[in-house]
């Protein structure tokens, strides 16, 4: 293609107004043509980038910066990110009740090195980290409160309670059995003792009556 023709196309291309078929052809030229006027392309790209300088500058709201920070943090929080695996630290505590605390995990600032070691079993390692930190949590916290920030721990906690419930029930039944056994055996024993006493009294009474009868006959 003629050099001047190429430059004419470049002017429309940098403005973004080339029709799609023509644009496709120009892109092929850029890649395939050795003497494509790439310097002119650069000059016109710089030129159109100066067009906004004619506008009155406006300032975006202060919340935009926080929004960017949030979005980047969300990117960092993706499960694929290795930094979660590398370092999970306790950074903050939320006070619930007097004797209940929940720990929140916060990932540290990511560094490029962290991207170099991507573990395939990230999920497992994350769970292990959380389980390891679990030992630091107070025993008396309520599962439903913990669940809001640490679902896995809450689940384990609930399962623990359930196990404890089962043990308590068995213990309770055992205690009841022992109590019943002890109470009724004692009662039966008491009843037996009482019966024996009555029996001996009756025997003694009968013996006294017999002796009295004999004495009466003698007299």
């Amino acid at each position: 293609m003629d050099r001047n023709k190429s430059i004419d196309l470049i002017k429309s291309y940098v403005l973004g107004c080339l029709n799609p078929e023509v644009e496709k052809g120009l892109k092929s030229l850029m890649e395939d043509t050795e003497n494509f006027p790439s310097q002119e392309l650069g000059q016109y790209q710089n030129l159109v980038a100066m067009l906004p300088l004619n506008l009155s500058l406006e300032t975006p709201g202060a919340e935009v910066k926080a929004n960017i920070s949030r979005k980047i943090s969300e990117l960092r929080a993706e499960p694929e990110s290795p930094k979660q695996v590398e370092e999970v630290v306790i950074s903050d505590q939320i006070l619930l009740d007097d004797d209940e605390q929940v720990f929140i995990y916060e990932s540290p600032q990511e560094t490029p090195e962290m991207f170099e070691e991507v573990s395939e079993n990230a999920e497992v390692l994350i769970e292990e980290n959380i389980a390891a930190k679990e030992t630091l949590t107070p025993l008396k916290r309520k599962a439903e409160k913990i669940e809001k920030v640490m679902p896995k721990t809450a689940e384990e906690h609930k399962r623990g309670n359930k196990m404890r419930d089962v043990l308590d029930k068995e213990e309770f039944e055992k205690m009841i059995k022992e109590y019943i056994d002890a109470y009724y055996l004692k009662m039966f024993e008491d009843m037996r003792e009482e019966s024996k006493k009555t029996f001996y009294i009756a025997i003694a009474g009968a013996a006294l009556a017999f002796i009295a009868f004999i004495l009466a006959l003698i007299v």
Partner: peptide, 28 residues
């Protein structure tokens, strides 16, 4: 760059709130 880019984006979209959202997307 935020002022210049925001001005440009707002000129195209003519919607300040949307322009702020797009500006944050640009930096992401």
């Amino acid at each position: 760059y935020s002022q210049l880019l925001f001005t440009l984006i707002n000129k195209i979209l003519d919607n300040r709130e949307l322009a702020e959202e797009v500006l944050s997307d640009v930096f992401v």
